[in-house]
C-alpha cells in the first residue's frame, strides 16, 4: 500500500481512518507489550543494576583512589612490577588450557549421556553432579595426596612402565590444571548435554539418507548444531577459572599465582580497596576484550542462538 497515491479522493474517508486506526491499535499493542515486558524484567534489571553495575562503577572509581586521594598509583604499580602482567598472563593461559581440556574431555561424555536411555542417563548425570556436594577445598587436597611423587598416579604410571621416574604433577601449573579440570568438567558437560538432548536426531537420518557418511554427517550437521552448548559451557568454565583461588593455591605449591590470589594479597598488603579493585578492573577489561575479539572472529551471537 503506497501512501503517495492520491487515494483519499477515490476511497471513502472512513476506510482511511480505519486503516490508520488499525495501525494505531497495532502500535498501541506493541507499546503495551513493550511496557509489560519492561515491567516484567524491571526487578531483574534493577537487581543487576544495583548489585552488579553500580558496584563495578564504584570499584572503577575506587581504583583511582589512593590513601583517600586521587591518584594513579595502583595502575603505576602494575607497570613498575612485572609480576602483575605475568600473573594476568598466567591466569588467562591456565583458564584457556582448562577450558580446552574440559571441552575435549567433556564433549564425548555429554554426547554419550544424551544417547543413553532415560534412567541410565539420569544415573550418569547424578554421577557428574554428586562431586558438587564435596567442597572445592577437600577435592583440591585429595588431589594433593593423589599427585605426589609417591602417590597412586605416579605409582600406576611407573608400574605400567610408561615412565621410569615419578613425573612432577604437583606444585606446578600441571597440578593446578588437573585439579581445576576436575572441578570445572560438570560446568561444561551439563550445558552441552542440555543442547544435545534436544537435538532432532531425524536430521542425522536425513543427512545419511542424502548420502552423507557418518563422519561428515557428524561434522557438518551435528557438531554445528551443538556449538551453542559448547560455547555456553566454554564461557562458563573460562570465566569461573579466571576467579579460581583455592585449587591453584593448594596444587600450585605457591608457584602458580592467579589474579584472585594477588587481589587477596593486595587487600591485605595495602589496606586500600583501590589496590585490589584496579587489578579487578584490568582483569575485567582483558576478559571483555577477549570476548569482543571472539565475537568479531566467530560471531558469538549467532552461535549462541541470540539471533
Amino acid at each position: 500500500m503506497s501512501l503517495a497515491t492520491p487515494q483519499s479522493l477515490d476511497y471513502p474517508s472512513g476506510d482511511v481512518s480505519a486503516t490508520s486506526l488499525n495501525r494505531e491499535a497495532l502500535a498501541g499493542n506493541a507499546r503495551r507489550e513493550a511496557r509489560n515486558l519492561a515491567l516484567l524484567t524491571f526487578p531483574a534489571f534493577s537487581l543487576t543494576f544495583v548489585f552488579v553495575v553500580l558496584p563495578v562503577i564504584w570499584l572503577f572509581a575506587l581504583s583511582f583512589v589512593e590513601k583517600g586521594q586521587f591518584g594513579l598509583g595502583h595502575y603505576e604499580r602494575m607497570i613498575t612490577y612485572s609480576s602483575y602482567s605475568k600473573i594476568l598472563f598466567t591466569t588467562l593461559k591456565i583458564s584457556g588450557i582448562v577450558t580446552v581440556i574440559c571441552a575435549v574431555l567433556g564433549y564425548p561424555v555429554a554426547y554419550l549421556i544424551a544417547q543413553l536411555p532415560g534412567r541410565l542417563a539420569m544415573a550418569f548425570i547424578a554421577l557428574i553432579i554428586i562431586p558438587f556436594w564435596t567442597s572445592v577445598l577437600v577435592r583440591s587436597y585429595a588431589w594433593l595426596v593423589l599427585l605426589t611423587d609417591a602417590g597412586p598416579v605416579n605409582q600406576t604410571l611407573m608400574w605400567l612402565g610408561l615412565v621410569d621416574q615419578p613425573v612432577s604433577l604437583l606444585f606446578n601449573e600441571t597440578g593446578s590444571i588437573i585439579g581445576m579440570v576436575h572441578i570445572m568438567l560438570p560446568f561444561f558437560i551439563l550445558p552441552v548435554y542440555a543442547v544435545i538432548r534436544s537435538f532432532d536426531w531425524r536430521l542425522l537420518e536425513a543427512a545419511s539418507s542424502l548420502g552423507a557418511p557418518p563422519v561428515s554427517a557428524f561434522l557438518r550437521v551435528f557438531l554445528p548444531l551443538s556449538l551453542p552448548g559448547v560455547l555456553a559451557g566454554a564461557v562458563l568454565v573460562f570465566v569461573q577459572c579466571l576467579g579460581f583461588f583455592v585449587t591453584p593455591a593448594v596444587l600450585g605449591g605457591g608457584k602458580v599465582t592467579m589474579v584472585s590470589m594477588k587481589i587477596a594479597s593486595n587487600v591485605q598488603q595495602y589496606f586500600d580497596w583501590g589496590a585490589a579493585s584496579a587489578l579487578g578492573i584490568v582483569l575485567l577489561f582483558c576478559v571483555l576484550s577477549i570476548l569482543y575479539i571472539g565475537h568479531r572472529l566467530f560471531d558469538l551471537d549467532r552461535l549462541l542462538g541470540v539471533r
Partner: peptide
C-alpha cells in the same frame, strides 16, 4: 615496611 617487602616477594615469586 611490610607492604613494600611483600610486594617485592610476590614479584620474586612470579619471576
Amino acid at each position: 615496611h611490610g607492604a613494600e617487602a611483600k610486594e617485592r616477594f610476590d614479584q620474586f615469586l612470579a619471576e
